[in-house]
């Protein structure tokens, strides 16, 4: 009974996180931290930091990774049973994506009805260049860290992503292979891993 109420709590908590996170993975992190570490005390601060590190090294969105890990930890911690941990993972992960599912399906219906109308195309003519800028920003943030002291910005290279000058060569080579060679991105990632093992 206690386990069931714990499962329901996890389901509700991750449902709320899924519904109120706007703006992607890193926005979601602060919400998860707030709910799971501070409000419920389900995992410790250092365990949370580990999840973030693991999420950066493994495939998949950081929000999904955190939900999976926390769901396992909490249920396994409470019952000592591995299969309960797996159940907790599944409940947390599915609860997290349920709000997106409902909302995106609503948007999709709207989209298919209005696609092609002048108003839709006109608005999209504004949104598409904005998305280009947002994607550029996502890439820039991974390379340069900006800190502000008053009105004076200072920039530094993100060392976790750019270890040394060889990183820039890797970036340039991957850019050329992808833009002009149209090499499959999966092959480029695997090549990056192989070169990382060779160069470092």
């Amino acid at each position: 009974m206690e386990t069931l109420s714990l499962l329901l709590q996890i389901a509700w908590t991750f449902f709320v996180i899924g519904a109120f996170t706007i703006g992607g993975g890193y926005a979601m992190l602060s919400l998860i931290q707030n709910e799971v570490v501070a409000a419920h005390g389900w995992i410790t601060e250092s365990a949370f930091t580990d999840i973030v590190a693991i999420s950066q090294m493994t495939p998949g969105p950081i929000g999904i990774n955190s939900a999976t890990y926390v769901g396992y930890e909490v249920l396994y911690g409470a019952t000592g049973l591995h299969w309960m941990g797996v159940l907790g993972s599944a409940v947390a992960t599915l609860s997290l994506i349920l709000p997106s599912f409902i909302i995106v399906l609503l948007i999709v219906r709207f989209y298919t009805r209005f696609k092609g109308s002048t108003l839709y195309e006109g608005t999209m003519g504004w949104l598409r260049p904005t998305v280009v800028g947002l994607i550029a920003a996502a890439a820039v943030i991974l390379v340069v860290r900006t800190t502000w002291t008053g009105c004076v910005p200072s920039f530094e290279i993100v060392r976790e992503n750019f270890a040394d000058w060889k990183s820039w060569l890797l970036l340039a080579a991957a850019f050329a292979a992808s833009l002009w060679g149209r090499v499959n991105p999966i092959i480029i990632i695997l090549a990056g891993a192989a070169l990382g093992l060779l160069l470092y």
């Binding site: 090294m57 991974l142 990183s167 340039a172 991957a174 990632i189 990056g192 891993a193 192989a194 160069l199």
Partner: peptide
């Protein structure tokens, strides 16, 4: 391996 992957991901 991840030292090699991260810069490549940015190009992608």
């Amino acid at each position: 391996a991840f030292k090699g992957i991260r810069p490549v991901v940015i190009s992608l």
